[in-house]
């Protein structure tokens, strides 16, 4: 091999290296892998086993995060703080409709989807119709939804159908069905975001509202669809979480309100909108879930677990932000 070709190859490798370093999802995925390897080394459990059992729990966060991602991508202060309440309400609705029987499984799934879609639409109507900033509008809508969930919770209890419960845990060729289904849904979401008119419109609205409007994009329709998508994903996440936990509870989804934002931003999507990555959402969700596993394996008390989580979140964020800036 000539020296010129060698130099060409080296610069090619260098370019690839830089491109990987500059990719928004890189840092969350790298952090997830690091935490995964440390966990395996310390616990002495199998590589695959650790990964799969983390993925089973991470899928709820992935679904909630992808919904949040569509809203955040639309930029201009769009954010959905109602996700946790939508998850809880759709979990309750689905479980109530199923009432522990497999024959009503499909109706329960439909109930969760309808609740999710309706809540997303309601969010948009309040934001656009009343001119309320999204962060407060979605919070206020969430409060109202929470009251409905409380009514449902206090008017008797029901169980999810056995089919739903097994959906989240049963494995097919070694992969839990819930994880496989979420992977497929994520792929569809990525295609929607990057390859469809709607996805491109959301991104351009997030990048520059005026330019998007001038280029003929219906901004209202685009933002409305982003909120409806967020509601739909929250509905699905609530459905699966209720199945996984064996029923709906009022504190079912509390942590997802903030965590859904965390996975979007840690994953490398811009909080200001305009550029997002589904791979990053997966990376960040796996990172946060594996981090909890690792801290448990290391035997840290709850207080230290929280401190380490906080510090590592800032570290990943600072690394990702620093490298993105240099690449621009």
């Amino acid at each position: 091999m000539s020296r010129v070709a060698q130099a060409g190859l080296a610069s090619q490798a260098h370019r690839w290296g830089r491109r990987i370093l500059a990719a928004p999802a890189t840092w969350s995925v790298a952090a997830a892998i690091a935490v995964w390897l440390i966990t395996v080394a310390r616990a002495g459990r199998g590589l695959e086993n650790t990964l799969v059992s983390a993925a089973v729990v991470a899928v709820f966060l992935v679904l909630a995060g992808i919904g949040q991602m569509f809203v955040i991508t639309a930029g201009n202060g769009n954010i959905d703080l109602s996700i946790s309440y939508v998850m809880t309400l759709s979990g309750f609705a689905a479980v109530r409709v199923m009432d522990g029987s497999n024959s009503r499984l499909l109706w329960g799934v439909l109930a969760a989807i309808v609740v999710g879609l309706a809540c997303g639409l309601l969010n948009f109507i309040v934001i656009r119709g009343l001119g309320v900033p999204p962060i407060v509008a979605t919070l206020a809508v969430g409060f109202v939804l929470f009251s409905i969930s409380q009514r449902l919770a206090h008017s008797g209890s029901s169980e999810p159908s056995p089919g739903l419960t097994s959906f989240t845990s049963v494995r097919w060729l070694g992969v839990p069905i819930g994880v496989a289904a979420t992977l497929v849904v994520s792929l569809v979401a990525a295609i929607i975001l990057h390859r469809t008119v709607f996805g491109r419109s959301v991104q351009s609205v997030g990048q520059n509202l005026r330019a998007a409007r001038l280029s003929g994009i219906s901004v209202d329709l685009t933002v409305a669809m982003a909120y409806v998508a967020s509601g739909l994903f929250a509905g699905l996440a609530g459905l699966m979480l209720a199945g996984y936990s064996g029923g709906a509870a009022l504190d079912l989804a509390n942590t997802y309100q903030i965590a859904s934002i965390a996975v979007v931003v840690l994953g490398g999507s811009l909080i200001a909108g305009g550029r997002s990555t589904v791979v990053g959402v997966w990376g960040a969700a796996m990172f946060l879930t594996l981090l909890t596993t690792m801290l448990n394996v290391l035997g840290l008390i709850a207080a230290w677990q929280l401190i380490v989580q906080g510090v590592l979140m800032v570290a990943v964020l600072a690394l990702a932000a620093g490298n993105q800036r240099r690449s621009r």
């Binding site: 909080i271 929280l306 380490v308 989580q309 979140m313 800032v314 964020l317």
Partner: peptide
């Protein structure tokens, strides 16, 4: 950095230190 993420991460640290 996005302020909401840093303050969120800080909330974990505050809570942890308070529990200590």
């Amino acid at each position: 950095l996005p302020a909401i993420m840093v303050t969120l991460a800080a909330s974990f640290v505050w809570l942890g230190v308070a529990m200590l």
